[in-house]
Design a protein around this nucleic acid. Structure first.
Length: 623
DNA sequence: CTTAGGAAACTTTTT
DNA sequence: GTTTCCTAAG
């Protein structure tokens, strides 16, 4: 289990005397330490694999870790997962019987569903539904900070955040009536379950002999709370992180959790600074960037070292506009494609909209590419519509699903009809649909819908594919598509047949529909990176933890990277710098930086200034 | 209630 | 350049 590890890695694997924090620089082999440590605990220390809990940042990291450990041990430990999917497991077992307004079949709402609910609530309070985004952020933050009363906490905030207190209350009521949780709720209610019930706490504390957490710099308050509850004084506690790669403070990460972990758990601290990923020139640049990152809680500056003799290449080019920048990238990829596969290339962008220009150029040059976020498959309107039908059929309380499909295809139910139906809601939407008084034409349409829902209610869980195929005809969905989206009807039908394929496979394997929904909601962008041989285009955030032989970082321009909004605060600028560091350290052999003088933004051509980061590393660039 | 047309906002980053 | 929201006529 210790073979192939350097002395520092080996020390971290073997150390068991107290909780341990491992500060692991980019490319220093932290995943290796995590997997070897897990295997070591099982093989050398006789701990049973399912008594080890390992929490990772993304599902992709969890799967990879499980697979690697599986190869070493012959079995895959059961408890390698993300915070969110771990919480779902806890809640499915223990949410009932805790005086909580959910039952174990609760569903998870994505941002779209949450926005739907929030907009409706805001409208009822005579407020602008466009505030939904702001309200969502306030509510999310309050839950992440884990206050005993979310509503009181919001009321006490500074204006205008405080005005969302009532909104938050009603939003939560609506989620509870739908038996639905948002992403934050998964953590919030898990922590509540563990803190409120000594029995539940004991059960989960005793389940694990050893707890390890990856990417610790990006944990938030409530996640720290959860770890504390699970730790329950055990010394088998191991966290790995790198302050310099903390890039999620905007959504609540607390890099200070590192210091807190060391203090509160009296953890031993170890470091890994030897880099096994990047060639020398890339590391030189990364070290310049990292030396400018403020880190006031540590006196030792991170300095990555490597033994490799190979130099690699770092190059910067400036181009006149976004298109010629794209052309330069496409030609470079062509030139290098003699020595590399397409999947060896990644283009890392600061903002999603930057993928547009790149996309059209790569298409012209016939370079196969995959945009990792773009529009995710499950975000397509037609896919969401049909999934909402299935959701409503399986959970008659699902408000977001109900509102999505009640008038899709059109049943003549508009604002008026919808508010009548909402008023009759008592137990679920099926009941509300039955009891609402409606004009005759609408009544007939709604009766059809009720019949459809009732007909499939018992089979949707086991036979989602069969139900989907029936549904398409019964509600006349293709007619609706042809009428509403004549131009790209074919494309949309393709998407639906892809959904059908997925569900057919699910049905054949005998996996339930709810499990499928859960999986797709808890997977990250990274999980959607396939193994196909194509150039990957993704945001820097999505690139965290990944690596490629050749990395492009285009659009290095002021107001893009660093972003305009980050310039308002020093803390945000610091985070941008860390993000730039994360970007440069994704590259193994070649790193190509570029910028353009003119760039299309909001459909207008803007004149851009070269990013400060390019100037800072100038002496390390050639060309 | 639907539809068409036009204004306005929109771009950080996401489990 | 695109999506989303609003309005006024049918």
């Amino acid at each position: 289990m210790l073979k192939g590890l350097n002395p520092q890695q080996k020390a971290a694997v073997e150390y068991l005397d107290s909780p341990l924090f491992l500060s692991a620089g980019a490319g220093s082999g932290k995943t290796k330490v995590l997997t070897h440590k897990l295997a070591y605990l099982v093989k050398e220390k006789g701990i049973r694999p399912h008594r080890i809990l390992a929490i990772t940042f993304t599902k992709k990291a969890a799967n990879e870790m499980a697979e690697r450990v599986g190869r070493m041990l012959g079995i895959e430990p059961r408890w390698i997962s993300t915070f969110h999917s771990f919480c779902v497991k806890v809640l499915r077992e223990d949410v009932e019987g805790l005086l909580m307004p959910f039952d174990r079949r609760f569903v998870i709402y994505d941002e779209d569903d949450c926005a739907r609910v929030l907009k409706d609530v805001l409208r009822r309070f005579n407020r602008d539904p466009r505030e939904a985004q702001a309200a969502r952020e306030v509510i999310s933050k309050a839950k992440q900070e884990y206050r005993s009363s979310i509503v009181d906490h919001i009321r006490a905030l500074a204006y205008p955040a405080s005005t969302f207190a009532e909104t938050a209350k009603e939003y939560q009521n609506e989620l509870e009536r739908s038996n639905a949780m948002d992403y934050d709720d998964l953590l919030y209610f898990t922590v509540r379950a563990l803190s409120d019930s000594p029995e539940v706490r004991k059960k989960w504390q005793e389940k694990f002999d050893y707890v390890m957490i990856d990417e610790f710099q990006d944990t938030n308050d409530i996640q720290f709370q959860l770890i504390k509850l699970l730790a329950g004084g055990k010394k088998g506690l191991f966290a790995v992180g790198d302050f310099f790669q903390c890039i999620y403070t905007w959504r609540g990460s607390r890099p200070s959790n590192i210091g807190r972990f060391i203090r509160e758990f009296r953890a031993r601290e170890m470091r890994l600074e030897k880099n096994y990923r990047s060639m020398r020139k890339i590391l030189d640049v990364a070290n310049v960037v990292v030396s400018r990152v403020d880190c006031n809680w540590s006196d030792t500056v991170l300095q990555l070292r490597t033994d490799t003799e190979e130099e690699g290449e770092v190059k910067y080019v400036g181009r006149s506009d976004g298109i010629s920048e794209g052309i330069w990238i496409a030609e470079k990829i062509r030139e290098l494609s003699a020595d590399y596969k397409y999947s060896d290339f990644a283009i890392l962008i600061r903002m999603a909209f930057l993928s547009r220009a790149l996309e059209s150029v790569l298409m012209q040059y016939q370079v196969p590419y995959t945009i990792v976020r773009g529009l995710a498959f499950y975000d397509r309107a037609e896919v969401k519509d049909l999934l909402s039908y299935l959701r409503l059929i399986s959970n008659h309380r699902d408000k977001a699903a109900f509102e999505r499909i009640i008038n899709t295809p059109s049943r003549g139910i508009g604002k008026k009809g919808l508010s009548l139906i909402r008023e009759s809601f008592r137990t679920d939407w099926l009941q509300a649909l039955r009891e609402t008084k409606l004009p005759q034409r609408q009544r007939l349409n709604v009766d059809e819908l009720i019949k459809t829902i009732e007909k499939h209610a018992d089979s949707v869980e086991e036979r989602p594919y069969t139900v989907l195929m029936d549904l398409l005809g019964e509600v006349g969905y293709f007619d609706h598509l042809r009428k509403e989206h004549g131009e790209d009807f074919e494309e949309r039908r393709e998407n639906l047949s892809e959904l059908a394929n997925v569900l057919e496979k699910l049905e054949e394997e005998g996996r339930p529909f709810s499990e499928f929904m859960e999986d797709s909601l808890l997977s990250s962008d990274q999980d959607r990176i396939g193994s196909e041989d194509s150039v990957k285009i993704l945001t820097l955030h999505a690139a965290k933890g990944l690596e490629w032989p050749v990395v492009f970082m285009p659009a290095l321009e002021e107001e893009i990277f660093p972003s305009a909004k980050s310039m308002l605060s020093e803390a945000a600028l610091q985070e941008e710098r860390r993000l730039f560091y994360v970007g440069t350290t994704r590259a193994k052999e070649r790193l190509y930086l570029s910028s353009a003088e003119l760039r299309m933004k909001f459909g207008q051509t803007m004149s851009m200034m070269r990013s400060r980061y390019v100037n800072e590393i100038r002496e390390h660039l050639k060309g």
